[in-house]
Amino acid sequence: MSAVAASSGPAGSSITTKVVIYGLLALFAVFYLLPLFVMVITSFKTLDEIREGNMLALPHNPTVEPWLAAWGSACVGLTCAGIKGYFWNSISMVVPAVAISTLLGALNGYVLTKWRFPGHKWVFGLMLFACFIPFQTVLIPMARILGLIGLADSIPGLVLVHVVYGLGFTTLFFRNYYEAFPNELIRAAQMDGASFFQIFRRILLPSSGPIIVVTVIFQFTNVWNDFLFGASFTSGANAPMTVALNNLVNTSTGVREYNVHMAAAMIAALPTLIVYVLAGRYFVRGLMAGAVKG
């Protein structure tokens, strides 16, 4: 969002209007914050306090036990070793998936804007449409192909899936960004004898900082938060974090440890929340680029 100093809205003149507006805005802030607030305080309560006490009350004797249990000893399905293994699964899935899809997206965007060929619009159109397909239409063949190439139920298999289905978005981001990049600079470099990759590395990449951040954050959030692919193509110890969280919450043996569930949900949410807090501006830009300029 561009920082426009002057607001376009007409200024509310009377004080009552102002009070009403601020009141409404505060009320909605509560609506958005309440579930997170409840999740956080519940994760620091003992089970007894959850049963006896008020959901909205701060914990009397805050305890980090639920967090430790969620991390190291809670039961996911039949194994009781917490979610730490799944957390690392997600990390080792996200890092290569984001790196590869971003790099390919940058190269694709570069070709589709600066090295145009007849039919480039069709190529881009087909890649763009791929962003929108319901993944249900590819689940069955994907499961079979992953089995055929020996990547079923594995993290590399998920990396492949996320790279392929992330390419449409990463290409879209870089294409739209490089579209605005002056062609004269490219042509001048070509005159000087710079090669395809030299132009990319020396001229485009150095000025691609913002769009790289946008793409990395967008892909990181998408891949980390994915559930459908993780649930379809992995099981047991190879599942990513979101699948493990869902299994943990729905494990029906023994007492339901709500505090542990909330701690696990917080652990699953923290990586994307931290990214959001640190670079929210870029996160929003990515969402908008993916949506408005579809």
Binding site: P35, M39, L245, M262, A268, A269, L273, Y276
Partner: peptide, 15 residues
């Protein structure tokens, strides 16, 4: 919007 739907679902299920 930054949260996983699974986290959102878990939170609201509790709420």
């Amino acid at each position: 919007m930054a949260l996983s739907f699974i986290v959102t679902g878990t939170a609201w299920k509790w709420f």
